[in-house]
Design a protein around this nucleic acid. Structure first.
Lengths: 117, 117
DNA sequence: ATAGCTACTTACCAAAAGGTAACAAATTAC
DNA sequence: GTAATTTGTTACCTTTTGGTAAGTAGCTAT
């Protein structure tokens, strides 16, 4: 492949990776999406899945995921007040990426973390 | 699926995602890996691909990728002094994850960034 | 009316990540 | 021996990210 074409392709990839990373970057966003792949959940349910997240961070990251149309929020009247969060179609479209991420995470653990270190 | 089994599966996924993210998290690591998918490169070549990275960050992130066995470094004598960086087998094993990341990045851009906003 | 539940928010702080600018070591070309 | 090239390092600072603790709002059950 010619060098110039290669360069341009590389730049395109860099842009796409930046777009994707801007959404999923951070300590809690991927975990939240994973928690929601099991269906609708309430604020407190997500907090139980992700044991060490604080309400502040959960609220903050849910908002950011909402802004990026990954997650949708539905308020239900009464009960004591409950809110249901779920993945949007765009959020669901993260599944194959998630799948690869998890698979690679397992691979990495078996390759590095458990051998020595 | 029973609730308890679901919970455990979710915890396994959370762990795997944490492992993976610990390696690829950060502004520059994915871009560096992308740059190296085009073959061996020297320090200066990577800097040219990733226009706005400083030598400090490039050096720092290359070291971290080396520690995690994603990238290998080879020193060649003379010329003026040149160093060749390349992906290890573990680094190459990131390809399918990268592929999904890039594809999702393009999808996200077409869905959100270019529609309105 | 008081206590409890759910779903947050706020103020404040600490740590991590990243940026800038200047400099250094080794080699080579002139 | 002087300058240029390549590959970094160092010191210092700013920004971003994340954590803690306490409080709030709306409703309900007693």
């Amino acid at each position: 492949m010619p060098r110039l074409k290669n360069d341009k392709l590389c730049q395109t990839k860099l842009l796409a990776s930046r777009d994707a990373l801007s959404v999923i970057q951070g300590k809690w966003r991927i975990p939240i999406v994973i928690s929601l792949t099991y269906g609708k959940k309430r604020f407190g349910d997500i907090q139980k899945d992700i044991a060490d997240i604080s309400p502040k961070m959960l609220s903050q990251e849910l908002k950011s995921l909402e802004e990026n149309k990954i997650v949708s929020r539905k308020l239900h009247d009464s009960m004591p007040v409950s809110v249901e969060y779920s993945l949007t179609p765009l959020g669901l479209s993260l599944q194959s990426l998630l799948q690869e991420l998890l698979q690679w995470g397992l691979h990495f653990r078996s390759e590095l973390i458990e051998k020595k270190r």
